[in-house]
Design a protein around this nucleic acid. Structure first.
Length: 675
DNA sequence: TGCATTGTT
């Protein structure tokens, strides 16, 4: 980097941040109102300064803590580090953070940053979250599943703990909605309401804080564009030839589009004049390894303009400095759960206005910028205001199990910020009932349901793990649960696909992907632990494998707490089990597949002669994902742990062979109803 | 036969 260049200071001295002028009024509002909604753009200092103000104002008296939740792990850690350094104290003392697998707090901690999902889990142990005097839910406008649920829980807690202070950080658009959510209370009786009015108590108040963003000029296309990839490339070269220096951020929907555009750019580079500045296209999506992602943060060589081609990861999760131009294709891939089929679909959908605004804002972080939208102004005006919240388009089985464990028996009466469609709730309740987590009155069962809720696993997988003891394969199921939790990030994607596939064969087991994953894990533990080279040679994602080890350890600790005996003497593949009953005569690999069936009976299919699969009702055609062993093997009946509809096909991944009779054996009620 | 956005416990 040139030493004679000025670097724009993104980190203002704390006294110069916009929030500093609001210190007194903010503290007053928080003192007098149970709920404060704080509207502040990036750079306002709300996340870093407000917790310090609160601590100094005495909110940590009597050993109470201030919690600030974040939707992402990195945010929780980086903000904690920043605040600790501002207060000049070692991280983990007065200021700390807590994320899964990492608890950097101590008895001295007063300000604690954590993920919203983790705070929700704390409520399982401490239902009133009584350790905290103030809870700030940051980035609540993102409307993640866990922050939505957290807000509902907080509303409930506040009735029993009126002294608790709740702070919600939101983008402008949704502030009123949050305020209304906390004010509007059907359960509150009329007498109490009248009393509140009499003493003039306000439930909540909105405080607006100006941000530190630069203006961004928005440009639209005059006509709808037929091929936004071509239009994007054209726009990049137009910017390059006529606009001053500054990097470009292009929003696309997925990996495939990104690779295509990068090739198209490369093809046109020779047409640039020899004297012209150069162009450097770079990909950015979550599927890349950390090392591959680092390139976008490095400064380009002299006279070179970086063109970052990214998915939605660059909208909120990853921030890149030096972006002056944003190109927005206007689409995003969104997941939506279909309650009638039980299948998630992933489809490109038009972005919301809120999303388009957020994308444009990425151009104005260090100086005034420009945003080129590859759609007309008329199309923009027809976009939805905000993205449909996750809670309205997700499989709610894990959420409802969690709510039940938190003591919310009547889901219909729970205060949802936006209620999920009834079919989603019904489907989730049905699944939880069929797994034995709920009884016929929709109450959590003991101990199965309670334990399933405590395990950090999706319900079907939790069921497998909790029935593993009776199949004599607990150690193996622990590994399989950890590996399938990685959701397909086991293998490292590489340019030479053939080699990658050959590497996979080394671990392959005839009966399916789960036993193959078990093999991979055992090889990693015995030969490749802490060895990134071994992983690279076998096309395995080192970071993912390390994570699997952590997940497995955590799950084992949970089981031990339940009083389940976890002996780690591994059976070898053809061992006959020394347990009682009829399974004693079975090889362990068969017991593993039976155990999988006991949790994944709802995910069963049969292979047709053409190699595709049919669901049990025969209505849906499924395809083995190319990363599955079953992509090019023969099978009859199978169960699978993942299913996703993309484009025009439904793919299943992590597939294992089973016997048809096992379905009726382990889920008699489920299959009786349907036959 | 040919591939999944992004988060989190």
């Amino acid at each position: 980097m040139d030493t004679d260049e000025f670097i724009p200071g993104l980190h203002q001295p704390a006294s110069l941040l916009p929030i500093a002028q609001h210190r007194a009024s903010l503290l007053y509002v928080i003192e007098t109102c149970p709920v404060t909604i704080i509207v502040g753009q990036t750079g306002s200092g709300k996340t870093t300064q407000l917790p310090q103000y609160l601590e100094q104002a005495g909110w940590c008296r009597d050993g109470k803590l201030i919690a600030i939740t974040q939707p992402r792990r990195v945010a929780a850690t980086t903000v904690a580090k920043r605040v600790a350094s501002e207060l000049q104290c070692p991280l983990g003392q007065e200021v700390g953070y807590s994320i899964r697998f990492e608890d950097v707090t101590s008895a001295a901690t007063k300000i604690k940053f954590l993920t919203d999902g983790l705070l929700l889990r704390e409520a399982l142990v401490d239902p009133l979250l009584s350790r905290y005097s103030v809870i700030m839910v940051d980035e609540a406008h993102e409307r993640s599943l866990s922050s939505d649920v957290l807000l509902g829980i907080l509303k409930k807690i506040q009735k029993k703990r009126p002294e608790l202070r709740i702070i919600i950080s939101s983008a402008t658009l949704q502030a009123d909605e949050f305020l209304h959510f906390f004010e509007n209370d059907n359960a509150i009786d009329e007498a109490e309401k009248a009393h509140n009015e009499e003493v003039n108590t306000q439930t909540g108040q909105i405080v607006k804080i100006e941000g530190r963003a630069f203006p961004v000029d928005i440009h639209y296309t005059t006509n709808p564009c037929e091929n936004y990839l071509e239009r994007a490339v054209q726009t990049i070269f137009d910017i390059h030839s006529s606009e001053p220096e500054g990097d470009v951020l292009l929003f696309l929907t997925g990996r495939e589009e990104i690779e295509t555009v990068i090739e198209m750019i490369a093809d046109r580079i020779p047409s640039l004049a020899n004297t012209a500045d150069r162009i450097l296209p770079l990909p950015l999506y979550a599927g890349l390894t950390t090392e591959q992602q680092m390139y976008v943060f490095e400064s380009a060589p002299g006279h070179t303009r970086k063109i970052i081609c990214a998915t939605n990861i660059a909208e909120a999760s990853v921030t890149i400095d030096g972006i002056v131009y944003v190109i927005d294709c206007g689409f995003v891939k969104l997941k939506a759960y279909n309650p009638s089929t039980g299948i998630d679909t992933l489809t490109a959908t038009p972005v919301s206005k809120a999303s388009a605004t957020q994308r444009a804002g990425r151009a104005g972080r260090t100086k005034p910028g420009k945003c080129y939208r590859l759609y007309t102004e008329a199309s923009y005006s027809r976009l939805a205001e905000t993205t449909v919240p996750e809670i309205q388009r997700s499989n709610l089985a894990p959420t409802i199990l969690q709510l039940k464990a938190l003591g919310i028996d009547n889901i219909a009466r729970f205060a949802f910020l936006t209620p999920p469609p009834a079919e989603l709730v019904t489907r989730a309740l049905e699944l939880l009932y069929s797994l034995g987590a709920l009884d016929e009155y929709a109450k959590l069962t003991k101990p199965l349901g309670i334990r399933m809720a405590e395990l950090a696993l999706e319900p079907m997988l939790a069921k497998c793990l909790l029935s593993a003891t009776s199949f004599g394969c607990l150690s193996e199921m622990l590994t399989i649960a950890a590996m399938t939790s990685l959701q397909g990030n086991v293998w490292f994607t590489h340019d030479s696909k053939k080699k990658e596939e050959n590497a996979r064969w080394k671990f392959a087991v005839d009966q399916g992907d789960h036993l193959t994953l078990l093999n991979v894990y055992q090889a990693f533990i015995t030969k490749g632990k802490k060895d990134a080279h071994w992983c690279r040679d076998h096309f395995l994602n080192f970071k993912s494998m390390t994570r699997a080890v952590s997940i497995r350890n955590q799950l084992r600790r949970y089981l031990e707490r339940f009083g389940i005996d976890v002996s780690e003497s591994l059976n070898t593949n053809n061992d006959v089990l020394r347990v009682g009953g009829e399974q004693a005569t079975r090889p362990v690999e068969e017991n593993i597949r039976r155990c999988l069936t006991s949790g994944y009976f709802a995910h069963a299919a049969r292979m047709a002669p053409d190699g595709t699969f049919r669901t049990v009702d025969g209505k849906t055609t499924l395809h083995a994902h190319p990363s599955s062993l079953m992509f090019n093997r023969k099978a009859d009946w199978v169960v699978f742990t993942e299913v996703m509809e993309t484009g025009d096909k439904i793919y299943i991944r992590d597939v294992s062979k089973i016997e048809k009779s096992w379905l009726v054996e382990y889920a008699p009620e489920y299959y009786r109803v349907r036959s």
